[in-house]
């Protein structure tokens, strides 16, 4: 009993500390992080996209894998939210259908 008590006393803070250290590692976030909602990219006016703009390049980079790898079904679902070209009023609602 005494021994397990000691283990708790030492391990509990240790666990807490190491958890807060993980928070700094980008790779740890990857597993829980939400997915980029690339459906918005498809609805954008392609003629107005400036391919020299780093923001656009970053978005392309992020969405490249999805464009090739994913079935079209998930993207269609979301198209109605952003059909008028405006950002969805409730982004959270959108994210659910795309998570994992």
């Amino acid at each position: 009993m005494n021994r397990s008590k000691w283990i708790t006393v030492i391990l509990a803070p240790a666990a807490l500390i190491s958890v807060s250290t993980w928070a700094h590692e980008p790779s740890e976030h990857m597993k829980t992080g939400e997915k980029a909602d690339c459906s918005a990219m498809h609805d954008m006016d392609h003629s107005k996209m400036d391919m020299n703009d780093p923001v656009m390049q970053a978005m392309m980079q992020k969405c490249m894998h999805q464009n090739h790898g994913e079935a079209k079904g998930g993207e269609k679902q979301n198209a109605e939210h952003s059909g008028n070209g405006r950002p969805p009023s409730n982004a959270k609602a959108d994210e659910h259908s795309h998570n994992h």
């Binding site: 980008p26 976030h29 990857m30 829980t32 992080g33 939400e34 997915k35 980029a36 909602d37 690339c38 918005a40 990219m41 780093p54 923001v55 970053a58 978005m59 992020k62 969405c63 894998h65 999805q66 952003s82 950002p87 969805p88 982004a91 994210e95």
Partner: peptide, 19 residues
């Protein structure tokens, strides 16, 4: 530098950790 000009959609794509 770029944050003030981002739409919600652009922000979501740029900041998502997952692919």
């Amino acid at each position: 530098q770029r944050l003030p000009e981002l739409s919600q959609q652009q922000y979501q794509i740029l900041t998502a950790r997952g692919e």
